[in-house]
């Protein structure tokens, strides 16, 4: 084959690839990059008499970043998201492990289907169901009362918020972890056993490193969803204290301060970008990791 022909073929292939990429690029530009840039621009606008006006002023930045309220909410949101990520990942792992290694492919398929089922119902509806279940007069406390325990206050607490976050993220994290673990070649695990590794050492030295990418991505999704969630901290956590998502609502509700809300949103985006890039760098750091 001549060089010209090879080049022609290569060019044809590139065109083909570019055409396939266009919808994604267009989508991201219109629905992500465009709104993101507008949000950044909006953070410099000003509000007068409830009406937002285009401007380039730093008043909203100074106002929000200069208030301890913002930093308190920031710290609390970060804490909640980290706790949610750690707790949900730890709860999900045994389930994912069992589905990946201890069940047949058919059972695994059914389990994954059942893990998708909760998403058929609105998240808000599921949260309001928890409102009934976790109430002091609700079924959980009734059962505990039968054993002479409680009643415990679970609503309007950090525990309530965590339950909400788990409702949102746990099924997804289990699915991602399961897929990641199921891709591990069983022969590596058998080899570890042959070399005298116990169950825990096999998990620690073989399974977790080999499934690292999937596990980190699952945790990252959990963090992102928890960090930006409004529903759980508001309805199950009683907005006490407010998270950044609640602060956005508060800011816009009174005085229609969209530029200040944009400042909070930009700070949230910066945090998420930092966490996401760090996680992905960590996940793919070693060659050969899965």
């Amino acid at each position: 084959m001549g060089t010209k022909e090879t080049e022609k073929k290569k060019r044809g292939f590139e065109t083909f690839a570019v055409v396939w990429r266009v919808p994604l690029i267009a989508w991201q530009t219109v629905f992500f990059l465009g709104p993101l840039l507008f949000m950044v621009a909006m953070s410099f606008f000003v509000v007068k008499n409830y009406r937002m006006r285009e401007a380039f002023e730093f008043v909203s930045w100074a106002k929000m970043l200069g208030r301890h309220t913002f930093w308190d909410a920031y710290g609390y949101t970060l804490l909640l998201a980290v706790c949610s990520t750690v707790i949900v990942s730890l709860i999900a792992f045994p389930a994912a492990y069992a589905l990946a290694f201890k069940t047949s492919a058919t059972v695994r398929r059914w389990a994954i289907f059942l893990l998708v089922v909760p998403f058929f119902t609105s998240y808000l509806v599921r949260i309001f169901s928890w409102y009934v279940v976790l109430a002091e007069s609700g079924p959980v406390n009734s059962v505990l009362g039968f054993f002479g325990l409680g009643p415990f206050t679970m609503l309007n607490t950090m525990f309530g918020t965590m339950v909400g976050y788990a409702t949102l993220t746990l099924p997804l994290v289990v699915i991602l972890q399961t897929v990641s673990l199921a891709n591990i070649d069983n022969r590596f695990i058998e080899a570890a056993h042959n070399l005298g590794c116990g169950a825990f050492r096999t998990i620690h030295a073989v399974i977790v490193p080999m499934a690292k990418t999937g596990l980190v991505i699952a945790a990252l999704f959990c963090f992102i969803l928890s960090f930006g969630d409004f529903v759980s901290p508001y309805y199950l956590g009683g907005s006490k204290p407010p998270t950044l998502a609640i602060l956005i609502i508060d800011t816009t509700k009174s005085g229609q301060q969209w530029p200040r809300a944009a400042v909070v949103a930009v700070m949230m985006m910066l945090t998420l970008f930092t966490v996401a890039f760090s996680s992905i760098w960590y996940a793919y750091r070693k060659r050969g990791s899965r």
Binding site: H68, T69, A73, S239, K240, P241, P242, L247, D250, S254
Partner: peptide, 10 residues
């Protein structure tokens, strides 16, 4: 409203 936000955070 600013005080209200601070109060919620207190």
């Amino acid at each position: 409203n600013d005080f209200w936000s601070e109060y919620k955070n207190a």
